[in-house]
């Protein structure tokens, strides 16, 4: 073991502190009483929960909506992406390369373009301002990523595993559900995690397809908050803190999967 360079740890802590300063500032402002917002205070000297109280009293329903949208998006993404990964990586689907290429292209399409297309379609179908419509639109961010991630992982599953199942008389469906899916558990977790986070964080689809809906997600809740009362920044920041919780929890619980997802060429708008 070589000597551990302490100066590096210290420098690392300083750099991280600089990087995370905006996050700290958000928490700091959220705890500041309304009357003291105009003074700059480096620490919440008189911490108060009034920001959180008014945030929660108004934003609880939108938190629920975001949870539902996130969960629906995870489900839709996994159901579409996992079998497709199996077809591409293991069953050697003809035209698989072309499909892979299409998925890469799909990730390049700006969300605002998709939003306009969906808007035009939803107007006709009466799907504007519905939770379902938002789930579908949000899933378009995650599905291409999910398929590519599953394909990459499944291509690495030892062929012997599948051959053994084949000899035991298992069909493609049984092989998929009994062997491939359980082995790919980590990929499923990564895909689910990102599908949830992206749906939870989405602003563009929410602000275009679900503007005046009865159930608006939390991102839109914050946005409308900013528009309504620009003076009550402690409440806005409190809502922002609450909206960041899923990300924080997932980072602590599932950091491994987060890193895996980013390096898989993760996409974020």
């Amino acid at each position: 073991m070589t000597a551990r360079p302490w100066w590096k740890t210290i420098l690392g802590v300083v750099l991280t502190a600089i990087m995370l300063f905006p996050v700290y500032w958000m928490v700091n402002v959220s705890l500041t009483p309304t009357g003291e917002l105009r003074k700059t205070q480096w620490f919440p000297v008189h911490p108060t929960l009034e920001g959180f109280e008014s945030a929660l009293s108004q934003q609880l329903p939108s938190l629920g909506t975001s949870l539902v949208v996130g969960a629906g998006c995870v489900l839709l993404t996994v159901v579409v992406a996992a079998p497709a990964g199996y077809a591409l990586a293991i069953l050697n689907l003809r035209g698989g390369r072309a499909l892979n290429f299409l998925l890469l292209v799909a990730q390049m399409i700006p969300a605002v373009v998709m939003a306009m297309g969906f808007y035009a379609i939803y107007v006709r179908l009466g799907m504007l301002n519905t939770v379902w419509g938002l789930i579908i639109a949000d899933s378009t961010i995650a599905v291409p990523f999910g398929v590519l991630l599953y394909t990459t992982f499944m291509a690495g599953i030892p062929r012997e595993l599948m051959q053994a199942a084949h000899i035991d008389g298992a069909g493609a469906w049984r092989t998929f559900t009994k062997i491939v899916l359980p082995v790919s558990r980590n990929s499923t977790l990564t895909v689910a995690l990102f599908a949830f986070l992206w749906a939870w964080s989405d602003f563009i689809f929410a602000s275009t397809l679900n503007r005046s809906g009865e159930f608006v997600p939390i991102t839109l809740g914050i946005y409308q908050y900013i528009g309504n009362n620009t003076t009550q920044w402690n409440a806005i920041m409190a809502t922002a803190v609450v909206a960041s919780l899923p990300a924080a929890i997932l980072l602590v619980v599932a950091q491994r999967y987060v890193a895996a997802g980013v390096t898989a060429g993760a996409v974020k708008d």
Partner: peptide
């Protein structure tokens, strides 16, 4: 990673 995971609106 935190800044990357936060919702953009936040």
């Amino acid at each position: 990673l935190v800044p990357w995971l936060l919702p953009l609106i936040v």
